[in-house]
Design a protein around this nucleic acid. Structure first.
Length: 201
DNA sequence: CTCTCGATGCGCT
DNA sequence: GCGCATCGAGAGA
């Protein structure tokens, strides 16, 4: 087994309450492997999408071909294509049959900065990964990764890294959602307070 | 700095 | 056809 598996997050991490997983994902390392090359960053901002009762969740209107991965087992990647040009990366949570996931909204770059700059058209600094579509671009994540099992994949996974204390976690309403009143106000966006890589607004 | 708006593919109604 | 879990360029203050 690869040395990296020592720190890889296992199924038991993901197969829990989505809000708990979302909070604990802060500080962990998202790793993308392209050939022998690693690109990675610390997760500093996430959003939880919790079940068919959450009208901002893609699964709110039931299972479709697009959102099927969210209904599957925890620990798989849910990657979707949006606005005709962007991708967003999520991690599936909870038990099989319960549609929920955590969207990764921002990373602090740690490995493969040169690759990130290239993938981002020469942009640098916070512009590398301070948004859900930006980090997918930087890490070369697209729909080819949709459904990938992050517990066993050699292409992408999460590694145990720094834990973020409760006092350093900020929370607020999710960004850009179009569900009902509750969906737009419930504080299911979590970020590392003061981290410069957190997305704007 | 803030605000507005176009890009652009596709899943779903 | 409509609308989207976004981004970045451009205009104006």
């Amino acid at each position: 087994m690869p040395a990296s598996d020592i720190d890889r997050l296992q199924r038991s991490f993901y197969a829990r309450n989505t809000l708990t997983v979302a909070r604990e994902m802060l500080g962990q390392r998202l790793v993308r492997k392209l050939g022998a090359h690693r690109i990675a960053g610390r997760i500093v901002e996430v959003e939880a999408y919790v079940g068919e009762g959450d009208t901002a969740c893609h699964a709110a209107r039931g299972r479709t071909a697009r959102n099927a991965v969210m209904f599957g087992p925890a620990g798989h990647a849910y990657v979707y294509f949006i606005y005709g040009m962007h991708h967003c990366f999520n991690v599936v949570t909870e038990q099989e049959g319960y549609a929920a996931a955590v969207l990764v909204r921002a990373l602090e770059p740690l490995e493969g900065l040169g690759s990130m700059r290239r993938h981002r058209g020469g942009r640098d600094g916070v512009e590398l990964t301070n948004g859900p579509a930006k980090l997918c671009s930087a890490l070369a994540i697209d729909r080819a990764l949709n459904g990938a099992d992050l517990v066993t994949s050699e292409e992408a996974w999460l590694e145990r890294d720094a834990l973020v204390g409760e006092s350093d976690i900020a929370e607020g309403p999710r960004i850009g959602v179009h569900g009902d009143e509750r969906a737009q106000t419930v504080p299911w966006r979590f970020w590392v307070a003061g981290n410069p890589y957190v997305s704007g607004r």
